[in-house]
């Protein structure tokens, strides 16, 4: 079974990595670790340091703040970027709603990764802009 090949094929369809060439996608697949979480397992823990930047390969995850479910993330979505970029503890739990397969990069490696791959940084920035827009709409 071509495990890494499957990862490369999967992430090639994600908007975050849409601008990468084949070798660059393979580099990403090697640079990130793959993790699996059983249903109900916590991936990010509110208030606990040392987390990372996660990209969902398969499955769904819930965002939970103070034990209240907020929204659901699916394949191609990512999380942990806020705590990674700010160097702070996560402000929410991320919980696997189904068996969940992710790629993960330690928070301390995110800056180097993004500056080395400006197109991914731009795509991430677009994603953050969408989140900000939705939050602003929700608040107004």
């Amino acid at each position: 079974m071509a495990v890494r090949d499957n990862v490369v094929n999967t992430i090639a369809a994600f908007s975050l990595f849409a601008d990468l060439t084949g070798p660059q996608l393979e580099e990403v697949a090697h640079l990130f670790d793959e993790s699996f979480f059983g249903q109900g397992e916590r991936i990010l823990r509110q208030g606990v340091s040392g987390s990372g930047f996660y990209v969902i390969l398969e499955g769904a995850a819930g965002i939970r703040v103070d034990n209240v479910d907020r929204s659901v993330l699916k394949a191609g979505d990512y999380f942990g970027e806020i705590s990674s970029l700010l160097g702070e503890v996560p402000v929410s739990d991320i919980v696997a709603e189904t068996p969940l397969r992710c790629l993960v990069l330690p928070a301390g490696e995110l800056e180097g990764f993004l500056t080395k791959h400006p197109r991914i940084m731009y795509r991430l920035l677009q994603g953050e802009a969408r989140k900000l827009k939705n939050t602003t709409k929700w608040l107004s």
Partner: peptide, 17 residues
């Protein structure tokens, strides 16, 4: 999961599935 095809496990090393 992963290149080593490790079985996904609970914190007490039981298969997650």
């Amino acid at each position: 999961f992963g290149q080593s095809r490790l079985p996904a496990q609970t914190p007490f090393w039981e298969s997650a599935t």
